[in-house]
Design a protein around this nucleic acid. Structure first.
Length: 533
RNA sequence: GCCCCUUUAGCUCAAUGGUUAGAGCAGCGGACUUUUAAUCCGUUGGUUCUGGGUUCGAGUCCCAGAGGGGGCACCA
């Protein structure tokens, strides 16, 4: 690949400048294997030769700035209603990337794009002059240009800028993907997200939705008096969830550290501190499998509200997600995939179902279950439904497994599953009516878990016992078990008010609102194996 | 980690085990002053993911490996 495949007698690109210094046969692409665009020598060489030719003419192909008077959206908003064949004397300076180029003799139509839209450049030899016209014809697809001109419409009514002068703002030396088909190869789309964003409208839309959703969350929470905080990513003990952490090392302290798997324990320390209403939208890391629904790093929103319990968390969950849907997509109606991949429209504005986990299991199995039952009975039930069971699991854990195996995938419309067994909820408060269950809920939409919340356990003595149970499980081989967080216990000993807590998987919500089935579609740079160059 | 699918020109895609692997777009040359993926004429461009093997002959069949996708497992 590093060999120069071009013929010594050159190729037609030398026509663009008579200066022999721009001959691609000796041009910059031959500097060695590290040369720019080394994987596409012909095209990159031709464009790099143009860069050299421009510099020889005293034109800088990468100038420092351009002052535009309007975005393309502003021009469209201000002049979108012009009659066909209108010329105005409205002078504008706009900038964008050249996406399409149509030559028509002494006329060139170019479609340029900025962040907010497209507009057509109308470049006439008579208007811009022979020299400017010749220079404009050297523009390649993908180049960034800034133009000065007047607003007009063509005979067919296309809103355009009649160009009086232009400046190259950045030369693209690598060709754009197919102008019609775009980029479809998933590998390339995720690795070269920049190229995906350039050509795929749908990709841009996903991230606009994601941004609007996060902005909506912040707005809702600020309106309710929540304070946004930032807590450590590097943890001495990875707690707050059941997950395997990433391990790292701090050199100066010479100690093992973990990337956080949850935000929970630090945020609740702030409730102890009297901050009353806090939230964080932050990246967390779980060292587990990658799938269409899982990325090793993902974004969690967690909030904690003093004096509230889980019922208020259920209310705020509905509000956050429904408002985000309206803010991001203009409607509270979302499309989810049900059984058999049948798509189903769901209006989030309708009240969401609430059902206890144990009732879901009973519905699915025909057998009443409860974590107070002897573990042997539940083992037998699990066996009947081909649910594998580990020896160390108690009744509560088996109930959760039964739920996941028999009922979870049926939860297409938004459903709050409540009343998780104590065994699987070490940080949640016991149900005020049933000592074997907790005041906890998980939200499922389209068979996927989106949120998890509970009345927070604030009794330091009971929390210590729960941690010790977790520690025992960890020592028995549960890699996802929590250890005892002594500092967190100390915080609780200072007294945490009654508190409701909530965590929402932001990527999952973004998937719901964007209507995608892959988390990679809503993460700009999803985790991939490294590319070999 | 296991199973299935997939990888061909810069991009999107073709190609019964049988000439020298094709097409559209992009690129290059030419025509065109109101185009809209402009059009028309001509034309350059290939490690068929990598490495082995079977065969007179492999893009195609077999084995191994790599990337990606999907499923299972784990999880949110």
């Amino acid at each position: 690949m590093s060999d120069d495949p071009r013929t010594p007698d050159g190729d037609p690109v030398t026509d663009l400048a008579t200066d022999p210094a721009t001959d691609p046969a000796t041009g910059p692409a031959t500097d060695g294997p590290e040369a720019l665009g080394a994987d596409l020598p012909a095209e990159a060489g031709r464009r790099l030769a143009k860069v050299a030719a421009l510099r020889d003419q005293g034109v800088e192909p990468y100038p420092y700035r351009f002052d535009r008077s309007h975005t393309l959206a502003e021009i469209r908003a201000g002049h979108g209603d012009l009659e066909p064949g209108t010329e105005t004397d409205v002078r504008v300076q706009v900038a964008g990337r050249v996406m399409l180029f149509r030559e028509q003799g002494k006329l060139v139509f170019a479609t340029v794009r900025d962040r907010g839209g497209d507009i057509q450049l109308f470049v006439s030899k008579g208007q811009i002059g022979d020299e400017g016209f010749a220079a404009f014809r050297e523009i390649d697809l993908g180049d960034w240009v800034g133009v000065d001109g007047t607003v007009m419409t063509t005979r067919k009514g296309e809103l355009s800028i009649k160009v009086d002068s232009f400046v190259l703002l950045s030369k693209a030396v690598r060709p754009m993907p197919d102008k019609w088909h775009g980029l479809t190869d998933t590998d390339t789309r995720f690795r070269q997200r920049y190229a995906d964003l350039i050509v795929n409208e749908e990709a841009r839309r996903h991230f606009e939705i994601r941004h609007a959703m996060i902005a909506s969350f912040r707005r809702t929470l600020h309106d309710r008096g929540f304070i946004e905080v930032e807590t450590p990513v590097l943890h001495v003990e990875a707690g707050g969830a059941h997950a395997r952490p990433f391990i790292t090392h701090h050199n100066t302290l010479d100690m093992r550290m973990y990337l956080r798997i949850a935000l929970e324990l630090h945020l609740k320390r702030l409730i102890v501190g009297g901050m009353e209403r806090v939230f964080e939208i932050g990246r967390i890391f779980r060292n587990e499998g990658i799938s269409p629904r899982h990325n090793p790093e993902f974004t969690m929103m967690e909030l904690y509200q003093a004096f509230a319990d889980y019922t208020e968390m259920i209310e705020i969950t509905e509000t956050l997600i429904t408002d985000a849907a309206v803010d991001a997509t203009g409607t509270s109606v979302v499309t989810v995939l049900g059984p058999g991949d049948a798509s189903l429209e769901v209006d989030l504005a309708q009240p969401w179902r609430q059902v206890r986990m144990i009732d879901m299991v009973e519905e699915a199995t025909g057998v009443a279950v409860h974590p107070s039952q002897p573990v042997g009975e539940l083992r037998a039930l699990a066996k009947r439904f081909d649910v594998p069971v580990l020896d160390r699991w108690g009744s509560g854990k088996i109930i959760e497994e039964l739920f996941e195996a028999t009922a979870e995938h049926t939860l297409v419309a938004p459903t709050f599953v409540t009343g998780h067994p104590v065994e699987i909820s070490p940080l949640a408060r016991v149900d005020r009516h049933d000592p074997h269950l907790t005041e906890r809920f998980e939200l499922f939409v389209g068979g996927r878990e989106l949120a998890n919340g509970y009345s927070e356990l604030n009794d330091p003595v009971e929390q210590r016992l729960r941690f010790e149970d977790e520690q025992a499980g960890k020592e028995a081989g549960n890699a996802e078990g929590m250890g005892v967080d002594h500092d967190y216990l100390r915080a609780l000993e200072y007294g945490m008010p009654p508190t409701g807590g909530l965590g929402i998987g932001m990527d999952r919500v973004a998937m719901l609102l964007a209507g995608t089935t892959s988390i990679k579609e809503v993460i700009l740079f999803p985790t991939l194996r490294p590319e070999v160059f």
